[in-house]
Amino acid sequence: MRVSDGRSGTPWRGPAGWLERLGLAAVTARLCLAHYADVVLGRQQLDLAALAGALRQSGLSILPAITLVTAAAGAILGRQAASIVDEFNLPALLLLSISYAVIMELIPLLVGIMVAGRAGVALAVQQATLVVTGQMDGLLVSGVNPITFTTAPVLLAALLMSFAFAVWGSVVTLGTAFVWLLTVSDLAPSDLADALRLAIDPGDLLEAIVKPLVFALAIVLIATVNGSTGGRDPEGIGQAATRTMVGAVTSILLIDLLFALLW
């Protein structure tokens, strides 16, 4: 595994550098999957301490923010829906479109961006710090794979928490919106239940679950690549964090577009 020293003519720069970054991302994914397989087969032990720390970092620490953002989104949607229902009297069509938009688009995007801002940036900073301080070289000399040491616990935690947040965010957002509608409109609870049932079929639920997981995978791979290739200059730590956030948000939007076109 190579690390850049931050000077011109080094790896990770230019068109060839993009290919090297893609290769590193592919190697990272393969090594993490192999590590998980070895854990399941009993060949290796899962670093529970590292996993617990990654869960706190990528999940529990942003639970209040996720809850607040999704509740606010639900209140906004409920208010807008109530005004339109009262004016146009099209409750079924409106509720169907809102339920679909929340579960299929809004929540996965919000969860992806929040995980990118917390877990992705933190992982990039951790990887870049290992390179700058020489600890990456120390791990390699000691025979410890830096990817399974740092990235594997974070990837597993990001996948678990992205799934949990997708479910929790959908419940909070729709619950807040529906409570608002039931309070200020003449809609019956059965209308809301029917709208939700008609809006989301099993295929849509599968997409709503898979999408945040793909986002999490992309975020962790981007963070690992940017952190590992930031160079040995301390300024590379901040640059790795910035590139990770920009790259993660861009990737999330592009992946979401691909889902819309291909699913």
Results as ranks from 00 to 15, higher is better:
residue 192 L to T: 03
residue 122 A to F: 05
residue 125 V to R: 14
residue 197 R to S: 14
residue 126 Q to G: 15
residue 234 P to Y: 02
residue 237 I to K: 01
residue 115 V to R: 03
residue 223 A to N: 05
residue 213 L to W: 05
residue 186 D to R: 13
residue 114 M to I: 15
residue 118 R to P: 02
residue 160 L to E: 11
residue 158 A to K: 01
residue 148 T to W: 07
residue 228 S to F: 12
residue 156 L to Q: 04
residue 199 A to F: 07
residue 151 T to Q: 13
residue 139 L to F: 11
residue 218 A to P: 01
residue 215 F to L: 05
residue 119 A to I: 10
residue 239 Q to F: 12
residue 220 V to F: 01
residue 145 N to A: 09
residue 124 A to D: 10
residue 127 Q to G: 11
residue 165 F to I: 01
residue 111 V to R: 01
residue 221 L to W: 08
residue 147 I to Q: 06
residue 137 D to C: 01
residue 217 L to H: 01
residue 159 L to M: 11
residue 206 L to Q: 11
residue 227 G to P: 05
residue 215 F to H: 09
residue 239 Q to C: 03
residue 147 I to N: 06
residue 197 R to E: 15
residue 140 L to G: 01
residue 178 F to K: 00
residue 119 A to S: 14
residue 202 P to T: 13
residue 237 I to T: 05
residue 117 G to V: 10
residue 137 D to L: 09
residue 235 E to G: 15
residue 131 V to M: 02
residue 158 A to C: 13
residue 148 T to P: 04
residue 166 A to W: 02
residue 214 V to G: 03
residue 205 L to G: 14
residue 215 F to S: 03
residue 120 G to M: 08
residue 191 D to M: 13
residue 144 V to P: 03
residue 125 V to P: 00
residue 204 D to E: 13
residue 196 L to S: 11
residue 217 L to W: 06
residue 161 M to S: 01
residue 186 D to E: 15
residue 172 V to M: 11
residue 143 G to S: 08
residue 191 D to A: 14
residue 124 A to E: 04
residue 200 I to M: 10
residue 236 G to H: 03
residue 192 L to P: 04
residue 163 F to P: 00
residue 111 V to E: 06
residue 229 T to S: 15
residue 232 R to A: 08
residue 115 V to G: 02
residue 209 I to V: 15
residue 206 L to T: 15
residue 113 I to N: 05
residue 112 G to E: 04
residue 160 L to D: 11
residue 231 G to R: 00
residue 123 L to N: 10
residue 192 L to K: 04
residue 215 F to W: 01
residue 128 A to D: 06
residue 136 M to E: 14
residue 239 Q to E: 15
residue 213 L to F: 02
residue 246 V to I: 15
residue 241 A to M: 08
residue 134 G to I: 09
residue 209 I to Q: 02
residue 209 I to R: 01
residue 138 G to P: 06
residue 128 A to I: 10
residue 205 L to W: 13
residue 158 A to Y: 05
residue 184 V to H: 03
residue 157 A to M: 06
residue 199 A to Y: 08
residue 162 S to D: 06
residue 155 L to G: 04
residue 179 V to E: 12
residue 182 L to F: 08
residue 246 V to M: 10
residue 162 S to Q: 03
residue 205 L to C: 03
residue 240 A to M: 08
residue 238 G to F: 10
residue 235 E to K: 12
residue 193 A to E: 15
residue 199 A to H: 07
residue 110 L to H: 00
residue 206 L to K: 03
residue 223 A to C: 07
residue 210 V to M: 12
residue 156 L to P: 00
residue 132 V to M: 06
residue 152 A to F: 07
residue 208 A to D: 08
residue 167 V to M: 12
residue 125 V to S: 15
residue 159 L to K: 00
residue 169 G to V: 09
residue 223 A to K: 03
residue 219 I to K: 04
residue 111 V to L: 04
residue 218 A to V: 12
residue 132 V to P: 03
residue 210 V to K: 02
residue 110 L to A: 12
residue 215 F to P: 00
residue 204 D to W: 10
residue 208 A to L: 10
residue 244 T to G: 02
residue 183 T to S: 14
residue 233 D to V: 09
residue 156 L to M: 11
residue 221 L to H: 06
residue 208 A to E: 10
residue 122 A to L: 07
